[in-house]
Design a protein around this nucleic acid. Structure first.
Lengths: 184, 184
DNA sequence: TTGATTACCTACTTATCAGTCAGTACCTTT
DNA sequence: AAAGGTACTGACTGATAAGTAGGTAATCAA
């Protein structure tokens, strides 16, 4: 049994990534949860407070993910990373990075800084992992590890967006293209 | 001197791609234009009508673009395409595809269909152009032309989003990575 | 020259939004 | 048993959103 606060974060995250930050209201959270609007404001006084909590939620989730796969082989790590996006796509959501990027200019500095830190973290992990696989020989790099990391990240998070518009086949093709590229 | 209607479209597109669909209101259009809210409603009765006009505006722009570069060599066409995104990035905007994808579930079917048709059109043009360059030898493909097209499109439109979060250096790196990949 | 059409404005409505505040029931600590 | 904190509810407010009704000045076509 998770706390009301945690449930609000999970639901808000779901709403944020399916409808967008400005398209959901506190009522979209309170109604399905069977609580009052004021209860949501009790836990998250303002909407930016809630947005910040969502960023931290993703930041923590990513940290747990990297810990969970830490002992695995580099290529396997990348595959787990890509599979995570498959589950995002299957549930009709998009990646937080794309969601926040669209509403970027409607966000305050604190949220922007938290998102920048989180995104940098993802890029760093990808870069390190690609270098790791390159050293051990399971991953092939034709550009710098960071450039390849940026390429893979934009491919996969944009694939969740594109597949909303043109269908899930395109998600599968993009994911496969990434794997083909790094395994030669 | 362009008509009020055209000016509204241009401004709405600018707002849509900098703040997001749900973050801008008719006042954000009427105020800077020095007209009344009702005047905007006269030209575009509802907000979805305005969103649809934006999609058509981009669809027409893209058609004009493909006509303009029709006689150029394939690799050159791709470079023009990528440079178009550079100007998007420089002005702090994001690509329409990413913008609409985020707010997808807040859009009606008519807009979704128009966006799907437009995006399919972009993918088709990229696929054809890549095949063209592959035949003439200026472009190197390591996967099917369509897969590479999807990869390039997601790379470049997500790059405009990512660079908002982590800075313009990443946009440049992604753009360069695409060119390196297709020219070997 | 009249009558319709275009392109607005003034003034409004209705809905919903984020956010507030006083009050309360229920623990926990002293 | 008293005091204080936690997690709410009920009942609001003020702002702003999209959208509309009715009027008007200018243009144009018959």
């Amino acid at each position: 049994m998770s706390s009301t606060k945690d449930q609000i974060i999970v639901l808000a995250d779901e709403l944020m990534r399916s409808k967008g930050y400005n398209a959901f209201s506190y009522s979209d959270i309170s109604k399905p949860m069977g609580i009052k609007n004021a209860a949501v404001h009790y836990h998250f006084p303002t909407k930016p407070d809630l947005a910040l909590a969502i960023v931290k939620y993703h930041s923590d989730s990513f940290d747990r993910f990297t810990e969970r796969v830490a002992e695995k082989e580099a290529l396997s790590k990348i595959k787990f990373f890509l599979n995570f996006y498959t589950s995002i796509q299957l549930t009709g959501r998009i990646c937080v990075i794309g969601a926040f990027a669209t509403d970027w200019n409607a966000m305050n500095e604190e949220i922007q800084e938290a998102m920048s830190a989180f995104t940098d973290n993802v890029i760093k992990w990808l870069t390190t992992t690609l270098n790791e696989g390159n050293s051990s020989g399971t991953i092939h790099l034709s550009d710098s590890a960071e450039s390849e990391a940026l390429s893979i990240l934009t491919n996969i998070f944009a694939a969740t967006q594109l597949s909303r518009i043109t269908g899930s086949d395109h998600f599968a093709a993009i994911k496969q293209n990434i794997l083909t590229r790094i395994t030669h």
